[in-house]
């Protein structure tokens, strides 16, 4: 009886984990060491050329761009999310619940739809420019999008909730008595903030940063729509290798590279005392 229950509980998840997680990743690891025939096919000849190719200056530039944009987006999200979480956590519990739900609502409508909303706002004939022109503040429309600024706004907007949730979770868990104790011991507000509050939310901060930075460098559609295809992120590069240039082995090598970067970040997070279950911030 007990054995049946065990089997019913575990068989599906084991099959799932092996077929839909383990096997696909092993398979792209395998492909990444094969040769492309330049027509979308794979020639099964072992090579490490795909990994050498990653260090071609053309691609290094993509990595560099991705890292810079990713870092700027992460920093912007952090600078918005941290004070926001602190201020929200000072409210009464039921107000906090309401405010956090209000953060989640836009997130429940599709990210692409919201990106489209930004296009309506930002483009040359968009709402911002129309308003600014009608107020005679500007004569010629400003370029808010089809450049890095557009990508930056779009990514910051899309990923902000992923930063707010983990930070809010860790901020709201701070024992108010600890802050009172610090005040009692004579600490000034700024000292309390940097010596007591910030250190006890490190894992929340790092969690938010991972959940912002990693998706940021992969979100090709925002770079596509708001960046006008001028700036390539790693996500665009991988997408192109699979769907445009049809060089799967190189695309796979890039993916493996991205996985390695991710795992290094996650290991760092775990080292800082973060829990894997908290990643994702839900």
């Amino acid at each position: 009886m007990n054995r049946n229950l065990k089997f019913i509980c575990l068989a599906p998840v084991v099959i799932y984990a092996l077929i839909l997680i383990f096997f696909p990743l092993i398979y792209i690891l395998f492909i990444s060491f094969q040769t492309s025939d330049n027509y979308g096919g794979i020639i099964y000849v072992f090579t490490i050329y795909n990994y050498i190719r990653i260090f071609d200056p053309v691609y290094l530039k993509v990595f560099f761009n991705s890292a810079i944009i990713g870092l700027f987006v992460t920093l912007a999200c952090l600078l918005i999310a941290y004070p926001f979480s602190i201020f929200v956590s000072e409210k009464k519990p039921h107000i906090q619940k309401l405010l956090i739900t209000l953060v989640l609502i836009p997130f429940l409508t599709n990210s692409l739809i919201r990106t489209y909303g930004w296009i309506v706002l930002l483009r040359k004939e968009g709402i911002f420019n129309t308003i600014l022109e009608s107020l005679s503040i500007i004569d010629n429309p400003l370029s808010f999008m089809y450049n890095n600024l557009g990508i930056f706004i779009g990514l910051t907007y899309t990923l902000l909730p992923f930063m707010i949730l983990p930070i809010y979770n860790s901020v709201s868990k701070i024992d108010k008595k600890v802050i009172e104790a610090a005040r009692d011991l004579g600490a000034k507000p700024l000292n309390i903030f940097f010596k007591v509050i910030v250190p006890s939310t490190y894992s929340g901060i790092f969690n938010g940063c991972i959940m912002t930075f990693i998706p940021a460098i992969g979100m090709f559609f925002i770079a596509d729509l708001l960046g006008g295809g001028k700036t390539m992120l790693i996500g665009n590069l991988i997408k192109n290798q699979f769907l445009v240039s049809r060089n799967w082995p190189f695309g796979s090598a890039l993916s493996i590279f991205l996985i390695i970067v991710t795992f290094l970040l996650v290991r760092l997070y775990k080292k800082l005392g973060g829990k894997l279950d908290d990643l994702g911030g839900f």
């Binding site: 998840v13 997680i21 990693i214 799967w248 996985i259």
Partner: peptide, 20 residues
């Protein structure tokens, strides 16, 4: 294995599924 879909970039999961 179960943490992988949560942490790796969606695009990697996307292309690996497409591959299989």
């Amino acid at each position: 294995l179960l943490y992988i879909p949560v942490v790796i970039p969606e695009i990697v999961l996307g292309i690996s599924l497409l591959s299989i």
